[in-house]
Design a binder for these strands. Sequence first.
DNA 1: GTCTATACTGAGATAGAC
DNA 2: GTCTATCTCAGTATAGAC
Lengths: 208, 208
Amino acid sequence: MIDTKQRILDTAERLIAERGYAATSLRHIIGEAGVNLAAVHYHFGSKEDLLDELIVRKADGVNAQRKALLERFEAEASGGVVPVDKVLAAFFEPMIEYGSRNPQFIKLMGRMHAEGLLPAIVAKHFQPTLLRFTQALRRAVPHVPESELQSRFQFMMGAMSQAVSGRREILLDAAGSAAAPDFRQTIRRLMVFLSGGLQAPATPEGTE
Amino acid sequence: MIDTKQRILDTAERLIAERGYAATSLRHIIGEAGVNLAAVHYHFGSKEDLLDELIVRKADGVNAQRKALLERFEAEASGGVVPVDKVLAAFFEPMIEYGSRNPQFIKLMGRMHAEGLLPAIVAKHFQPTLLRFTQALRRAVPHVPESELQSRFQFMMGAMSQAVSGRREILLDAAGSAAAPDFRQTIRRLMVFLSGGLQAPATPEGTE
DNA sequence: GTCTATACTGAGATAGAC
DNA sequence: GTCTATCTCAGTATAGAC
């Protein structure tokens, strides 16, 4: 059948979003998809490459929107500096939009984070977008030295990763465990948090 | 030999810090430790439980110091509120101290994060400490509603996780890749970043 | 160019002898 | 407490049918 590849992709995406990457064996995927084991390696080469394809087909659209939105803000600023909050909006709003309409994508990203796969994925597929945004941030917070800005960008990715994961288990807070906020609200909170963190004063060079 | 258990622990810690958890097979560990495969399961039950023991014997001291430092600050405030920066200091300074004298611990934590194991570990072994610190934070930033404070705590853990990992790969920044800052300096930067993020104004409830 | 059947290697786990 | 032997399941590789 000509749609073998597609069936593998769809089934893999669903199962990985539900159970996680490591916990989803290729044999499980091919069982549900009704294809042969070797077909996976024929079409994708390896389990890891299969995952890559999943991510790419989801992330490319979001990244394009991010870039477009940032460019619009830059055009509106016409030579001026796009403020931090707008840079953050350009980065996160497309994700909110996409995620709100595509809950499986959120679950998939959450799984990727939970298994420590997000950084590698980000490094592989988001690099050009991220470079674009560091440049914008550099202009938005000129009081922060380059080296520290890179650190803050790392922190930002870590916080985002945690936010996207949807995990609340870190604080199973016997006390007032409030209802879990939805994706949109969580990311909004993240943007406020990051805005505060990115604009903090520069850290003094500890020479002690 | 009675020190079989100890030899397994030491060898596992070293190998996992060097190569990562998933990449370190039990057969590799027992090879270097000179013990039998079944001994691992006899003493620890499973590979995962072995990891747990590694973490516990490292983390307990740090957590005790954190708690003691926070309590000292609270005593000094004598009924008043311990400011955010001091709460953060109580949390991170013991880690800086321990990490600076024990580089393998940092590598181990970095590996744990890189493989997505940190959140589970944190949830298992750091829960009481974390609860203690959320209470202190709640008093330090009373303008942030409980639900959002929990979100911010999640973000904080994510940022910390990323900082501890020592990864720079997210920004392999063809351009000015500054020299990697050392552990102490990175955590100091993290504290400044978090201070800004935690004290940000509350996020408006988007009802759109 | 697509797919199937089958085999290979290495992983964690376990039962039972000593 | 320790060790041998074995089990199950994973990802991967290949030979060959269509």
